Amino acid sequence: MKIEVIIIFIFAGFALLEAWRGKLLRRDGEVSDDARVEAISTLLVVAVTQPTILFTVSYLLGFILPEYRSALAETAIAFQILLLLVFDDMMQYWWHRMSHTFIPLYKLHRAHHNGKYMSIRIVYRNNIFYYAMMPSLWLSGVLIYLGLGEVYAVYLVVKMAVIFGAHSEWKWDRFLYNRPWLNPITWVIERTISTPSTHSAHHGLDPSDGITTYKGNYGNLLFFWDVLFGTAKISRQYPERYGVSGMLRADWKEQLFWPFYTTPRKQKAPSKDTDVSMPTK
């Protein structure tokens, strides 16, 4: 079975869980642009952006460095996994972190936080240029060219399953938190991979709730990067509200296509409402 099909089935599984719980469509706080942004961004990254990047890298390296094709194919699987964790997952951690500290990148990433809910729907919700510029996708293309394709396929299935679970409205980690006897295992899990609790905290609306953290919990597959680089916040709780506040309205075209489109605005947002998720200058 192709990797794309497996990932689609995992995505569909989380979507069905949310639908069964009545949490997939017509979410509280949803506005008319939300579904449009989510559908377009998901379709573009899966069908256009990622395949185009991988094809481009393969074509360019095949032309410039043909002798290095599959050069690492016979290396140990553990070594290949380590390369993927460092050059794909850790690099995505730093890209995500930069997107919350560097204003132009934040404007590409803000669409991901615009939704006032957690859901499988928002996994790929980003400005189209956010993924096109993502270093980890380009570096993954290089590693695939060097012969890590088979290991990458398995790695990507695991990574996307974790990311889907971290964004889903279905909080699978409640099972762990409600069973104190599992605490030693839970302690390891929540410091190793992204969980609904740690990633929901990153999407929270109000940092004064003691749970929300805009300046942390950036990990995608591994939450370990947050632990290692000092940006981890673990509360084993979930924010009651999600999204960003105090920013001028950005319609679906700006969310997807900024800087080539900016929503016409008549007035500035009230100064008392500042977007606490926005990078400080």
Rank of each mutant, 00 (worst) to 15 (best):
M1Y: 09
I3D: 07
I3N: 03
I3P: 05
E4I: 13
E4Y: 08
E4K: 13
V5A: 13
F9W: 08
I10L: 02
A15P: 00
L17W: 09
L17F: 08
K23N: 12
L24D: 04
R26A: 05
R27M: 08
D28M: 03
G29R: 00
S32D: 06
S32H: 10
D34E: 10
A35E: 11
A39W: 05
A39V: 01
S41N: 05
L44V: 14
L44F: 10
V45R: 09
T49P: 10
T49C: 01
P51I: 09
T52Q: 05
T52R: 01
I53P: 12
T56F: 10
F63H: 04
P66R: 13
Y68P: 00
Y68K: 10
Y68W: 09
S70R: 00
S70H: 11
A71M: 14
A71H: 08
L72R: 06
T75L: 13
A78M: 11
L82K: 00
D88C: 02
D88L: 00
D89A: 01
D89K: 02
M90A: 07
Y93R: 07
W94T: 13
W95R: 06
W95K: 06
H100W: 09
T101Q: 11
I103C: 04
K107W: 04
L108E: 00
Y117I: 08
S119M: 14
Y124K: 04
N126S: 14
Y131G: 14
Y131K: 09
A132F: 15
P135Q: 01
S136I: 04
G141I: 12
G141P: 02
L146D: 10
E150L: 07
A153F: 06
A153V: 08
V154G: 02
Y155G: 10
L156I: 00
V158W: 05
M160Y: 03
A161D: 03
V162H: 07
I163A: 13
F164E: 02
A166H: 14
E169V: 01
D173K: 09
Y177F: 14
N178F: 01
N178A: 02
R179V: 02
W181N: 06
L182H: 10
L182Q: 03
L182S: 09
P184H: 01
I185T: 03
T186Y: 03
I189F: 11
E190S: 08
S194M: 15
T195S: 03
S197C: 09
T198V: 14
T198L: 11
T198D: 11
H202C: 07
G204R: 01
L205W: 04
D206L: 02
P207G: 09
P207M: 02
T213V: 14
K215H: 15
G216S: 07
N217V: 00
N220Q: 12
L221E: 05
L221S: 05
L221N: 11
G230Y: 09
I234S: 14
S235N: 13
Y238F: 14
R241K: 15
R241G: 06
Y242G: 10
G243H: 01
V244Q: 08
L248V: 12
R249N: 12
W252Q: 08
L256S: 08
Y261V: 06
P264Q: 05
P270Y: 03
S271V: 15
S271H: 08
D273I: 04
D275E: 13
D275P: 07
M278A: 14
P279A: 02
K281C: 00
